[in-house]
Design a protein around this nucleic acid. Structure first.
Lengths: 225, 225
DNA sequence: TATTTATGATAGTAATACTACCATTTAGAA
DNA sequence: TTCTAAATGGTAGTATTACTATCATAAATA
């Protein structure tokens, strides 16, 4: 049996649903590869079209511009990650163990998930680390937010914040701690690999060290309160 | 008496030193205003030239491209902030008080500093919040790093990391905690203002709450170890 | 079989990100 | 003071980017 995981996306993110056709799926697949390879700044619809073997106009029928495509990919990732979290923390009662799993999932390089054939989660994870915050660090953040483009990110943050509160009902900053965990899981990874002197993991470059740091940071805060 | 604070900049960041001429100073001054107003993506040298009343070619004599200008501005800001920190923590012996001052300086909206007439620090602080990470979240981060473009950021991080270690010599992650403090002072501010459900400060939107959160996060970690 | 719908192919435009060149003004050295 | 070099102003031009529009064809569907 092979289950197909479908993540429901905000329809305002695309002009035509990329999951609904071969070309659309190719756009998702190749955009992940190309953004990973060139970085978001150098990424253009023209290069993407050449990569796929279609034309620029073909891409524009699916996405208005590359910013919307990036927001789509990040939203997809957060949706996917929330599912991963719900799957891997299912049936666990101890919120401390749950939160540890969450931290591990956030900070660990992902395996390419067979369930979603056209998107390479491992590459997408790297894209989120290096480009993810560009999805909201824009002048349009307010307008995009009104259209609920960041709902998957907020939902994930709310889920993690709820686990934090389960661990420690009196802790005063569950949501800020949740967004800190998410962002730092990624930033410390980027720093470790590119600006190692900003971290304490420059020698080993091991993800496990980031996990240990975040666990230490989070659980001393929660134990105290 | 009016002292002029000069921040020494990496010469590879510019083609001609913008501090050395009126046009150069105008480029710095107006780029801060224009990036603040339009955001970095929509910011172009053409618009900047029109703003100043010069031509595109004039700007290109000082900066190779807008990325280098952004890196210049961020580097300037980190250098300036390191001076602020050293000034405001001077003669304080208790490292805990020092670290609290640092957190406050990082998280507080700055006053425009009279000592540096052509750069508006208050606007620049806002630019750092919204655009600062774009200086290093690029494919060229390795090449830029080799040219020491991020040295002021690293120096600042090292200074803060040293204070952390003073507070708690056994704490295992002083540098990662320092970069976490810096990034979160800015990200929580951005979230509070634009995606408030990612924080616990959405109601009041007060910087003092970010400071309280960071103090709680940092000092429970340090007390414990 | 008729008819939508998706795609392919081509063209065109405005803006961006530069580079090059020349004329003029300004500032410093002789 | 004059000469010279440096800084600036102004204009042009190019390749690329970020789109929009149009038309033909192929594939799916009714």
């Amino acid at each position: 049996m092979k289950l197909q995981l479908q993540i429901t996306m905000n329809e305002a993110l695309f002009l035509r649903n990329p999951e609904s056709s071969e070309l659309g799926k190719n756009i998702l697949k190749h955009s992940v590869q190309l953004i990973y390879k060139t970085g978001f700044e150098a990424f253009t619809f023209k290069k993407l079209a050449e990569d796929i073997g279609t034309t620029e106009a073909g891409i524009y029928r699916y996405f208005e511009n590359k910013h919307k495509l990036l927001v789509y990919l990040t939203a997809w990732y957060w949706g996917w990650l929330e599912f991963q979290i719900s799957y891997h923390t299912n049936n666990i009662n101890d919120p401390t163990i749950k939160l540890k799993r969450v931290i591990k999932l956030l900070a660990t390089a992902v395996q390419d998930d067979e369930q979603t054939s056209h998107i390479n989660e491992k590459l997408l994870h790297q894209i989120i680390i290096a480009e993810g915050s560009k999805a909201y660090l824009t002048k349009q953040v307010g307008a995009d937010n009104k259209q609920h483009f960041f709902k998957p990110y907020k939902d994930l943050c709310a889920v993690i914040g709820a686990i934090v509160s389960e661990c420690s009902p009196k802790y005063k900053y569950p949501k800020s701690l949740a967004s800190t965990i998410i962002e730092m899981a990624h930033f410390q990874n980027f720093f470790m690999n590119h600006l190692p002197s900003l971290t304490d993991f420059g020698n080993t470059k091991e993800e496990t060290e980031i996990i240990a740091f975040l666990n230490d940071l989070v659980f001393t805060s929660l134990e105290k309160s």
